[in-house]
Design a binder for these strands. Sequence first.
DNA 1: CGTTTAATTGAAAGCAGTCAAACTATGTGG
DNA 2: CCACATAGTTTGACTGCTTTCAATTAAACG
Lengths: 251, 251
Amino acid sequence: MTIPPFHLLVRKLAERAELSAADREALIALPATMRQVEPGAYLVREGEQVTHCSVLASGFAFRQKLTGAGARQILSIHIPGEALDIQHLTLDLADHNVQTLTRATVAIVPRKRLIDLAEARPRIGYALAVAAQVDASIEREWLLNIGRRNARERVAHLLCEVAVRLDALGLADEYGYELPMTQEQLGDAVGLTAVHVNRTLKALEADGLVKRRGRVISFPRWRELRDVGDFSSLYLHLARQSFAAAGAAVG
Amino acid sequence: MTIPPFHLLVRKLAERAELSAADREALIALPATMRQVEPGAYLVREGEQVTHCSVLASGFAFRQKLTGAGARQILSIHIPGEALDIQHLTLDLADHNVQTLTRATVAIVPRKRLIDLAEARPRIGYALAVAAQVDASIEREWLLNIGRRNARERVAHLLCEVAVRLDALGLADEYGYELPMTQEQLGDAVGLTAVHVNRTLKALEADGLVKRRGRVISFPRWRELRDVGDFSSLYLHLARQSFAAAGAAVG
DNA sequence: CGTTTAATTGAAAGCAGTCAAACTATGTGG
DNA sequence: CCACATAGTTTGACTGCTTTCAATTAAACG
């Protein structure tokens, strides 16, 4: 399903910063080019000039960077409604890559227009800064996850994070959610190999902590999974405590 | 040596954003409380309300977060002149801890004053946003470092980063620099144990890539160390290419 | 100088990686 | 609708990097 481009974004931004009706309209009125893109399409490339910023209207995306030897580290996963490149809003050269995970619809906005809007409407600038800082907070948690947790904890933590974030948007339900990532990609997100991700998922499944049907994943024992993943949603800086964040089961 | 509180910061901010003379004066005129703090002092605590923002006038600091089991991941290292808590400028609750590494002098500014100033002077707001986004870029590189590089590469990369950043401020010279961190702390910064950091440093030393006298470290073969660490300074978003960044030897 | 903290070294164990093969979806063309 | 091709998942055996545990040496400090 494709959602009107900016509505989800506006809703997301408005959760944490106060936006007037005029602010909201200004956001929705941004000159955006809607584009359908294939899975794996590059939206931003490391080292290149940053000329635009996009919003995910539907589909999933991720940010990524590569070592000289070609190993990939996924830096974050993005779900519908999220702005994809506010990280570079004030930087001229991209320091990482942004790619779609699935087929996706993106609304592309010239970077300059967004900067101008932020300057003309401070509350929008502030709201964008909040969004960027929340993304940074998530990256910090990933640093902790990869640097100091073992495989089982890492995988559990990632599954919890995506569940809570999707739930906050109403995109996850009692049946769990579909995580459109290969195990190779999951591995690159948590600093493991695909093989080891597989074994870890199998183990979590054997312990009854997750259930899988293809890539649809659900959580028979949410509380326990949260404990295994050492997950606490503080770092997501959610405005309202969603029921999942508060500790209830997502599925 | 203690440096007049905001001068280094102003210089740092002005590198990447244009600040008028009035902007600079407004920054320098900020109501700051100067404070001498002991090594290990907490400037911000995870979960607490963020009421102020500080600037390191002298000494080193770091940001950090802990797993439920108590393992620590250092998220970044801060050198004199850097703002210590712009990560939380738009967030109410701190998502990580900020601590001094050495005895340090910090200039403490009420968060609200900084936000007000940013609103009154958009260029300052922009400059602060740039600084925050550069910090985030460094965190992303650390994610890649920890997630996808082995011990030797990680340690080399960290040493290179600190060298280039200090050099950009003129705080590193041909004799290298003093890194006031224990190997325990180094380990927590690169996702390794202290023991393995020790072995790794020893190996780099045996290979003639680094030289150590206590915690003063220098680089007999900078180029090679850079290659080992897969280090490229793009992600630091340095305004001018410092000679170290350009590939010359730091020591 | 004794005491504490940090650095160093050795031996052993273990978690995750590597390599390789089998299996299973998914998709395509005939 | 089937046969084949391709991408992704699963499993096993083995390797190895890093950790763990422990003890020793060196450095920092009052």
